[in-house]
């Protein structure tokens, strides 16, 4: 059993050209390359003598080892120009390009592909960012709002109103949902106009975390007054957490909006890059902060947890059971 039994995004589509690329996912080094119509992933060491295959090139849908010219197809089947009767085989992975990213999983696994309900929305942008901290520590940061006054600039609450922010955590067999409701922090008028946010807006941050693979989908929108009708633009953002090694985690952020590109095309062409930049900035601030948490113990045992941390404990349990497939009670601990 391995974490790679789940589908993981490993690259953004735009990061993969016609050259093979090395990626590390869950500590495994893979080479990812494009074939004529698809994408493929193999162990990044030529089974012949161990040469990293990403140093090679792609020819006829196969990656060619730069050392002795052995070549490997998407299904792992290889051939050697000098050993025409040999039928060598490389470890291969299921690989698909979807939602603007390249995803891999072990071919023996039947794990479902994560469903993100963005079929109605407009893509704002995709981004990959590396957080230099272990998966659990990174996930913790993304499933509570108490850090938003200190870390974030746009979306979230202020230190002064944090005590008034309502938060509700709902746990099911395979998901943890967190709903937060509080006064939106003051915003520059340009940003307010950009999102059509009313003056007395309340910000709802409502997300659900699932664990095959580990990802959270955020629904972020505004109310006109504490219990008023919905107002302004809404974002739907999916964040996938791909462990690179035990100490680093890649974030794949797929950001969508309920606004369209085609109704006021000129305004949208100006606005969408701004929204994209804003999402990037906020994620970068998370990553900068998380770098200081690289050596923090993963366990939550003996931590002084507050009311916003309920989802952390629930998520750790599901992460252990669903993602890591370890029996209850295993480290990283929750009590």
């Amino acid at each position: 059993m391995s974490e790679l039994d789940h589908w993981h995004p490993v690259l953004l589509s735009r990061e993969l050209s016609d050259k093979p690329v090395a990626v590390t996912v869950c500590g495994q080094r893979l080479v990812v390359f494009r074939t004529r119509h698809g994408v493929a992933a193999l162990d990044d060491a030529c089974p012949h003598r161990g040469m990293p295959l990403h140093r090679g090139h792609v020819e006829d849908d196969r990656v060619v080892c730069p050392y002795h010219g052995w070549r490997w197809g998407a299904d792992g089947r290889g051939e050697s120009p000098g050993n025409p009767r040999a039928k060598p085989c490389a470890a291969h992975y299921d690989c698909v390009e979807r939602l603007g990213a390249v995803w891999v999983k072990r071919p023996t696994s039947e794990a479902p592909f994560p469903f993100v309900d963005v079929g109605g929305h407009t893509l704002v942008g995709t981004l990959r960012a590396r957080a230099k901290a272990p998966l659990e520590i990174v996930l913790d940061n993304f499933i509570e709002v108490e850090h938003t006054p200190e870390v974030h600039m746009f979306l979230g609450y202020t230190r002064g109103t944090m005590a008034d922010v309502e938060t509700q955590t709902t746990v099911t067999d395979d998901s943890v949902r967190v709903w937060n409701h509080g006064p939106q922090r003051p915003l520059p008028s340009l940003v307010r106009r950009m999102f059509a946010i009313p003056a007395n807006a309340y910000f709802i941050d409502d997300w659900t975390t699932r664990f095959s693979p580990v990802h959270a989908v955020y629904e972020q929108y505004f109310l006109d007054g504490p219990h008023g009708p919905r107002a302004g633009e809404a974002l739907r953002i999916a964040v996938f957490f791909t462990p690179v090694t035990a100490r680093e985690t890649d974030l794949f952020v797929l950001a969508y909006t309920n606004a369209t590109r085609w109704e006021r095309p000129l305004a949208a062409a100006l606005r969408l890059p701004l929204v994209r930049a804003m999402v990037r900035l906020e994620v970068m601030r998370d990553c900068a902060l998380l770098a200081h948490m690289a050596d923090a113990p993963i366990s939550l045992r003996n931590r002084a947890l507050g009311r916003f941390d309920q989802s952390l404990v629930a998520s750790r349990k599901l992460l252990e059971r669903i993602y890591r497939k370890r029996p209850d009670g295993h480290l990283p601990v929750v009590e």
Binding site: G120, T122, R236, N258
Partner: peptide, 8 residues
Amino acid sequence: AHVPMYPS
């Protein structure tokens, strides 16, 4: 207004 362009 808040429903995205392709309603679910």
